[in-house]
Amino acid sequence: MSKGLQLSKLIMGDAQADRVVPPTGFTARLTLFAAGAMAFLTVFALALSLASGRLAARWGDELAQSSTLRISAPEEQMAAQTAAALTVLESTPGIASARALSVDEQRGLLAPWFGPDLPLDSLPIPQLIEIVETEEGYDGAGLRLRLQAEVPGAVLDDHTRWRRPLERAAGRLRLLGWVSIGLIGAATAAMITLAANAALAANAQVISVLRLIGARDSYIARAFVRRFTLRALLGAAVGTAMGALAVFLLPSAQESGGFLTGLGFQGMSWAFLALIPPLAGVVAYLATGAAARRTLGELT
């Protein structure tokens, strides 16, 4: 029998095979609950993984972009030092472009702190130079040495130094999310195995009667496997729906909220949720099948 046919037979069911095992209300409810709770948790682990994945990607993008050079010098030297710095930067490998910010741009940057009426001309404001890196990046230590020699008033502010650890942390967080999903899957398999073992033990007499009258192991196993697979499928569907609802009802992401409120699904990533119930079903199918084969193999 091909796998596909076997699967469809399993889902469509064999009403008779199903009836040979007496209904067990309690185990059934526990299995449903466990599958549901696990699916609910999976939704959050998945949300965490996807959100930190997005975060890491965003930080990574910005990482590739910019650093800032700040020139503090007496007013009469400012123009000369700025020109010297730009010359140094343009001749540094790994820098795509360097551009001195205009007075208006600098005023824009300072406005949130000092108000729009700042008399910029009368204050010793440092000149900022925006540096855009190439993909390979530049040698920060080497650049600092050259600047020290040629533009004594320059301070290189390299954003990457604080972004990299954050990006690494986001990557770890994402990994943690995936590990959690793996653990949840394994725990689901363990719980279903325990439930299936309990059901098999409770039905020892049924199994021995079936063996006596000539039932194959596969027939007996199917009755149990189908039951647990459908329970896990149903439980996980309910759990996933509730988890999705909970995520949906989270306060929506805001600029200032940053990471925490960014937890959620965007666009296509909602589709990942649809995979949870079938995966739970597959886990239950494999776990119950293994438990049934093991139990039946020990019988005579």
Binding site: Q16, A17, V20, V209, A215
Partner: peptide
């Protein structure tokens, strides 16, 4: 199988085969 009536118990060998 105590949860099935006699009729189905007697027919069980046919069912499982």
């Amino acid at each position: 199988l105590d949860h099935l009536p006699v009729r189905e118990n007697v027919a069980l060998p046919l069912t499982v085969s």
